[in-house]
Amino acid sequence: MQTTRHEPDPFLTHAEPVLMVKDVAATVKYWHDVLCFPGHWTWGTPPNHGGVSWQGAFIQFSQNEEAAGRMRGQCIWIRVKRIRQLYQMHQDSKAEIVMHLAKQPWGFVEYVVKDLNGNYVTFASPEKGDDEPKSEPLPAVVRVLGRKLTTAEYRSLAKSVGWTSPQPDEILQKKLDAALFTAVAENSETGEAIGCALILGDGLSFFYIKDVMVHGDWQRKQVGSTIMREVKRWLDDNAPDGSLVGLFTGDGLSQFYQQTGFGPAFGMVRMIERPQSG
């Protein structure tokens, strides 16, 4: 006699491969520093298990030297969006790319990285439907350096991206002076500021990236990406180990910031609003 089941069907949320490795701590560090996975964790002292994550991709590592040697050459296939940005990130981080970015007969654009354990990671994106925005190469006249912005430069950039600032110049100047570092993109032929990003914080444990702007005439030319790489360079050189670096952005720009190691987080905010006198 057949009975009717009333329980809901099982629902699978995601799958995580577990790779056998010789050194969990070194592996997690490699996947974080070289393959740019922002989420990372370890278990045990010294670590005998750990993992990394990046949005929907999760990989775990378990320490087993014998199995790691026997199973060397394991493969992981990861589907991504905006693969060309990721490919450039992995080139910049000196990942060992054993198959360069190329179209494959099965309809995907792919490249392959060999990790420190001799395992292979394929990053792939559909050849059709890849929603990468078109971007021109960085113009030769653009240079990015660390320097202060003037209030006039700030207001010009803010106006070009549609931001308004009711603050008087003296208040705006205090905000600019409070920045620990400001990355400024310039047109080297004119000295005009065409983009910027400010780093605020206590200089010890917390850093906040604010007011990332690129003038409308210079967008889609790799200016913003170059500014964020300069921000990352300064943080890597100056922020103490274990520091928290934060920023606020909408979903539309989340992948842009992920190329410099940022990942989604949960939090709460409160805006201070004082009644206007008069």
Score class of each variant (00 low, 15 high):
60 Q>K: 10
81 K>A: 15
236 D>M: 11
67 A>K: 14
272 I>K: 10
183 A>P: 11
110 E>N: 06
70 R>F: 07
95 A>T: 04
20 M>Q: 13
225 S>L: 00
143 R>D: 11
5 R>N: 14
176 L>V: 03
138 L>D: 08
63 Q>R: 14
243 S>A: 10
18 V>P: 02
243 S>D: 03
244 L>R: 06
131 D>K: 15
185 A>Y: 03
80 V>F: 00
245 V>W: 06
80 V>Y: 07
218 W>Q: 05
98 V>T: 13
56 G>E: 07
190 T>D: 07
70 R>M: 10
226 T>P: 06
98 V>I: 12
231 V>Q: 03
89 M>C: 11
44 G>R: 01
202 D>Q: 04
136 E>T: 07
36 C>E: 13
25 A>W: 06
191 G>W: 06
198 L>W: 03
135 S>R: 08
127 E>H: 08
132 E>C: 10
275 P>N: 01
55 Q>D: 11
65 E>Q: 06
1 M>V: 13
191 G>I: 04
120 Y>A: 10
261 G>Y: 00
58 F>P: 01
31 W>D: 07
8 P>L: 10
273 E>W: 04
192 E>Y: 09
247 L>H: 06
135 S>T: 15
167 Q>K: 12
110 E>H: 00
11 F>S: 15
30 Y>K: 10
83 I>E: 01
110 E>I: 00
3 T>A: 14
202 D>E: 07
84 R>S: 04
73 G>R: 05
149 L>K: 02
207 F>D: 01
96 E>H: 09
200 L>T: 13
227 I>Q: 08
278 G>L: 06
96 E>L: 06
175 K>C: 14
187 N>I: 10
154 Y>L: 12
104 Q>H: 05
53 S>N: 13
159 K>V: 13
164 T>M: 14
214 V>K: 09
174 K>L: 09
272 I>E: 11
224 G>A: 05
258 Q>P: 02
125 S>F: 00
61 F>C: 03
244 L>G: 00
50 G>H: 12
259 Q>W: 00
25 A>T: 01
1 M>A: 15
55 Q>G: 12
54 W>G: 05
182 T>V: 14
126 P>I: 08
208 Y>A: 12
190 T>M: 07
9 D>C: 13
107 G>W: 09
26 A>W: 02
168 P>H: 07
240 P>E: 06
103 K>N: 14
171 I>L: 14
81 K>E: 14
100 H>T: 07
51 G>F: 02
132 E>V: 05
127 E>R: 00
48 N>V: 13
110 E>S: 09
257 Y>Q: 06
248 F>N: 15
76 I>T: 02
26 A>D: 12
138 L>G: 03
224 G>I: 01
30 Y>L: 10
202 D>L: 04
187 N>W: 04
266 F>N: 14
150 T>S: 09
116 L>W: 05
29 K>Y: 05
45 T>N: 15
127 E>S: 08
130 D>M: 08
155 R>Y: 03
73 G>H: 02
158 A>H: 01
125 S>A: 14
178 A>Y: 04
243 S>K: 05
132 E>R: 12
59 I>H: 01
9 D>F: 15
169 D>T: 09
256 F>D: 08
54 W>C: 12
196 C>L: 08
186 E>C: 11
13 T>F: 15
112 V>A: 08
246 G>D: 12
27 T>S: 06
249 T>Y: 04
105 P>R: 02
